[in-house]
Simulated assay, not measured.
Amino acid sequence: MSFRILTEQTGIFESAVSIGVLKMESGFALIDSGVEDSAVKKALQSIGDGWGAFKAILNTHAHADHIGGNAWSIRNRGVKTYGPEGEAHYIEHPDLEPHFLFGCAPIPELMNKFYCAKASDVHHRLRPGSFELEDRKLNLIDLKGHSPGMLGVITEEGLFHVADAIMPESLVTKHKLMFVHNLGEHLETLERVAGLAASGYLLSHGGYLEKVDTLIDLNRSVLLEVNDLIFTLAAEGAEDTTIHAGLSQRLGMVENPGQYYLNHTAVRAHLKYLKDLGKLDLIWDQGRLLWVPVSA
């Protein structure tokens, strides 16, 4: 874990969940706040006093590992928070994430820092487009797909914080099943990122990279590889839990309860995409809801 200065005005605290740093007229802002209080504390310690006072947090999306330091920062440093308009409610009511994953009142295994951050206010709601943060002129980019309203940030220098739109090679090749909320939208986001010029890229789970063309291709190809595998597992008609089990066996996945429900959401995102393409449909069969191939 270390603070890396990229330009006179922009840096990144590289860690398991990297945090962007924007120098402003009055001090500095963080892009996301990590998974818990200690994450933001370590970032602040690494940044030191050279960039002034800690003034704000700009959240890219509402997942717990990106907002975990918000509450501490508001309470102890008096910072102002900014978040995507479409996900602000999840930041203010983070227990909705485990409800979303489980489908009802969640099990205890989903009520921890990885799935349920501490509640925090969103002082300013953000939309895609031009945005001024004091003297910083930023461009907020629609990156929905991984989550319903994720935003990326392009700075004046052309540095592009892509949040979780792109995963690093180490995670893609190790896990293959990447979390997505809407696969169709996520694939469109990968195309959007590839088409935008940038001088460098800040990945939440991969640190700083100068180029991402090859990595975008890898992300896309593995997403589609998993999608093809899920289609194959539905060839004879199967419930989503059976498809998940088959995928887990094929990929050698070992899942605890929290990971299972996170991954199951991703599996269903793939199934929804296949239904949107007209390749799979749902039928009711003797008390079971089956995913079946659509006849040509």
Results as ranks from 00 to 15, higher is better:
residue 2 S to D: 13
residue 8 E to S: 04
residue 14 E to T: 15
residue 15 S to F: 04
residue 16 A to M: 14
residue 17 V to T: 13
residue 33 S to T: 13
residue 41 K to G: 06
residue 47 I to N: 03
residue 48 G to V: 05
residue 51 W to R: 02
residue 51 W to T: 02
residue 53 A to G: 06
residue 57 I to S: 07
residue 63 H to W: 11
residue 64 A to Y: 06
residue 69 G to S: 12
residue 70 N to P: 06
residue 71 A to Q: 13
residue 72 W to D: 08
residue 73 S to K: 06
residue 73 S to R: 05
residue 83 G to V: 11
residue 91 I to G: 05
residue 95 D to R: 14
residue 95 D to G: 11
residue 104 C to M: 10
residue 106 P to G: 09
residue 108 P to N: 03
residue 113 K to A: 15
residue 114 F to L: 13
residue 115 Y to W: 15
residue 117 A to Y: 11
residue 129 G to V: 10
residue 134 E to G: 01
residue 137 K to E: 11
residue 139 N to L: 14
residue 140 L to V: 04
residue 142 D to A: 04
residue 149 G to A: 15
residue 151 L to G: 01
residue 155 T to L: 02
residue 156 E to M: 00
residue 163 A to C: 13
residue 166 I to Q: 11
residue 168 P to S: 02
residue 170 S to F: 05
residue 170 S to H: 06
residue 171 L to S: 08
residue 178 M to G: 02
residue 182 N to V: 00
residue 186 H to T: 05
residue 187 L to N: 07
residue 188 E to N: 12
residue 190 L to D: 10
residue 193 V to I: 15
residue 194 A to Y: 14
residue 194 A to I: 05
residue 195 G to H: 11
residue 200 G to V: 05
residue 200 G to M: 07
residue 213 D to L: 09
residue 215 L to V: 03
residue 215 L to A: 09
residue 218 L to V: 07
residue 218 L to D: 05
residue 218 L to Q: 05
residue 220 R to I: 03
residue 227 N to L: 08
residue 228 D to L: 03
residue 229 L to G: 04
residue 229 L to E: 14
residue 233 L to S: 06
residue 238 A to G: 09
residue 241 T to G: 06
residue 260 Y to F: 11
residue 262 L to G: 04
residue 262 L to I: 08
residue 262 L to Y: 12
residue 267 V to H: 03
residue 267 V to A: 03
residue 268 R to Q: 14
residue 270 H to Q: 07
residue 274 L to T: 02
residue 283 I to P: 00
residue 287 G to H: 04
residue 287 G to P: 06
residue 288 R to G: 08
residue 293 P to I: 00
residue 293 P to E: 01
